[in-house]
Design a protein around this nucleic acid. Structure first.
Length: 229
DNA sequence: GCGACAG
DNA sequence: ATCTTGTCGC
């Protein structure tokens, strides 16, 4: 599956931020998802002191969650890690991995945020938009937003809001994601809309892909491939 | 000026 | 993210 060439990647940080502000208007936050038979997990790792980026895509069937296809690529790292600009470090490598797939997935779970981002355009949204595929951001830690802790049961979640809640708790701030407990006794995950998926669906799909561990099986498989095992 | 800060 | 020892849980 090939990405739409909406822009180049050789950008300075300021240009990258301007691009995000421009593209965020094209993110779809409502469901436009067809039959989901294949779910892709994506993760990226680094080698040689960070000079080489290793991106992996693991495609699992649904609802079986068995690995049906995989792709791994190694490319030179060309952008530093800057909070809020993760796309420009990881996306080129991830898209190269997607280009190697024989069959396009129906849904993508990315290890990072979607619209729960300073400019509402995290890497999960960026990847989903360029591939024109429904996508969900599933991050292990917070980038922006405030929230309460969800109850300690699988499936419990609390909204992730864009700004501090008023002293009396009646603030009407924008909800940019959810904090989801995928398993009792472990740290919750940060789930947000990537592209073409509602937050409710994002939560449902994330749970559907998460069976016995903290992270979705899609993410676990991709991480395994990206770290070379 | 001082923290916060996906991976 | 990556590096790494010790420790806890299943």
């Amino acid at each position: 599956m090939k990405a739409r060439p909406l822009h180049g990647w050789d950008l300075a940080p300021q240009e990258a931020m301007a691009l995000q502000a421009r593209l965020r208007a094209r993110v779809e936050r409502a469901d436009r998802v067809g039959a989901v038979r294949r779910v892709a997990g994506v993760d990226v790792g680094f080698e040689a002191d960070g000079r080489v980026t290793r991106a992996a895509v693991a495609v699992l069937d649904h609802p079986g969650l068995a690995l049906v296809e995989q792709a791994v690529v190694r490319v030179p790292t060309r952008f530093p890690y800057v909070p809020g600009l993760l796309s420009f470090r990881e996306a080129p490598a991830a898209l190269a991995a997607f280009a190697r797939l024989r069959t396009a997935p129906d849904l993508i779970l990315y290890d990072g945020h979607g619209v729960a981002h300073p400019r509402r355009f995290g890497i999960a949204s960026h990847i989903g938009l360029l591939l024109d595929c429904p996508s969900i951001g599933v991050a292990k830690t917070r980038l922006v937003g405030v929230h309460r802790a969800p109850a300690n049961r699988r499936g419990a979640w609390t909204p992730l809001r864009a700004a501090p809640i008023d002293g009396d708790g009646t603030g009407a701030d924008e909800t940019i994601g959810a904090v989801l407990r995928t398993r009792a006794g472990v740290k919750p995950l940060y789930v947000s809309i990537g592209h073409r998926v509602s937050l409710e669906s994002a939560l449902r799909w994330t749970l559907a892909c998460t069976t016995r561990y903290r992270l979705p099986e899609t993410t676990r498989q991709a991480h395994r491939l990206a770290s070379g095992r």
